[in-house]
Write a protein that binds this DNA or RNA. Structure first.
Lengths: 237, 237
DNA sequence: TAAATAGTGTCTTTAAGACATTATCGC
DNA sequence: GCGATAATGTCTTAAAGACACTATTTA
């Protein structure tokens, strides 16, 4: 192993060797949640799968780095991008002290290019060994997505602009791993206040045409179902 | 303004000038949520209040830095420490490219030293101007605490090892800003599965003695109240 | 008109809201 | 016994669970 990269700042103190941004790109494919991985060609971890990250530069905001790396690998930008965690343990990267800022990135499954420049979609419940401790980052990303699924409009990133209830249901099912009862699914999603019917219908296949819905707000927002806290005091006495 | 600190790594690429860790130390005092601030003595932001952060070194894990800075300022370690966000916009620190990893740190309100080496407890809903954009970090920390209050055992960090229901209620009220109906508060907290009665009672004052409770798990854990998702399909047909 | 899919209605069950009531202390 | 505080019980209201049923399409 070669020696670790080091850095010193102009005031004479040790500095991180670099900063990396890695997007955890998740998408439901064939009914299961997948993550976008790339195969490394250089050491360390040559021929090992990792997240499609890259180095940040001093003139770029970290979200921009994550977006850029994502576009380079998939050809599309993320609809939804949120910071996950920073992994800054000095020992985690053999190249040196390289903290990593992870992002959760969600893109519309419909616009994916399935196979692109060494990138591959892998089911999150069947991950191979990943370099740089990226398996932990994927786990954190999946947990975040699952945790926010019913409480926010995070699914904006995983559905086309207009979608039907059955379509949304299948996406939700792929993410959570649960099969929802259709009428209750509909009721809950409508009660969340996150979506509204557009009035249009999706014709085409057999069966009754499905009504089209859209998200009321495409920027990050919370469901308006009241969070289950105990009641506040009401009586005046 | 002096020139910005720069750094270059041994491979010749620009590197962050430094990395900082800042704990957002929150505690309920006099029924309101407070945050620990220190007054800066040097430029930039001299005589301005900021979070008690510090530089990370290449041989220290970031949680350790946050803990250390906290102990230096309060004399106690955090019972609960969790990473919040990383603020890495290159423009946010006038000294140079200095990403900041923020931590939410909770310590038992009973062991605080109220006034210590330039540190001060300030109510989070009455913050002064803060340097380095720290107001945003405080806001994120408060939001995280409030958001997790009823869904996790995050309150472990804010209560003594053994506590009574009224005591817990007052802490929860200070954090959420809501006055809970006592019997419903008790029912919800018991149903969460996070706490259990120890069998002991807290005697002393007037009135019926209160039963003592403790957290079942002191490491981070989630409430077992089922998260309100729509039902899964049950019927077999 | 049958198969397929989407959408509506509603009864049951569970959980939350709002108190009245009872219990146990110090003085 | 009285004021103070804690704990219990319970009735009401709201939300989730579990389906049966109705509606529209294509083949």
């Amino acid at each position: 192993m070669t020696s670790r990269i080091r850095a010193v700042n102009s005031a004479g103190f040790p500095a991180p060797a670099a900063l990396t941004a890695v997007p955890v790109v998740l998408a439901p494919l064939q009914g299961r949640l997948h993550v976008l991985l790339v195969e490394r060609t250089d050491a360390p971890f040559a021929e090992t799968w990792v997240l499609p990250g890259g180095f940040m530069s001093p003139d770029e905001r970290p979200e921009a780095t994550a977006q850029r790396k994502l576009t380079e690998k998939t050809g599309v930008g993320a609809v939804y991008l949120e910071q996950l965690q920073t992994y800054a343990d000095p020992q985690r990267d053999p190249r040196g002290w390289v903290p990593t800022v992870a992002y959760l990135a969600l893109i519309d499954a419909a616009v994916l290019r399935t196979d692109e420049s060494g990138a591959r979609w892998v089911a999150v419940d069947a991950l191979p060994e990943l370099g740089f401790g990226h398996a932990e980052i994927v786990r954190d990303g999946v947990e975040r997505l699952r945790g926010k699924l019913w409480w926010s409009n995070i699914a904006v990133g995983l559905l086309p602009e207009r979608f039907t209830m059955p379509q949304a249901r299948r996406v939700f099912e792929a993410i959570s791993g649960v099969t929802y009862e259709p009428s209750n699914f509909r009721r809950e999603l409508e009660l969340s206040g996150l979506v509204r019917a557009t009035g249009g219908v999706a014709k085409g296949g057999p069966g009754r045409p499905a009504a089209l819905y859209e998200f009321v707000e495409r920027r990050p927002a919370w469901s308006l179902r009241r969070s289950r806290q105990p009641a506040a005091v009401r009586r005046e006495s």
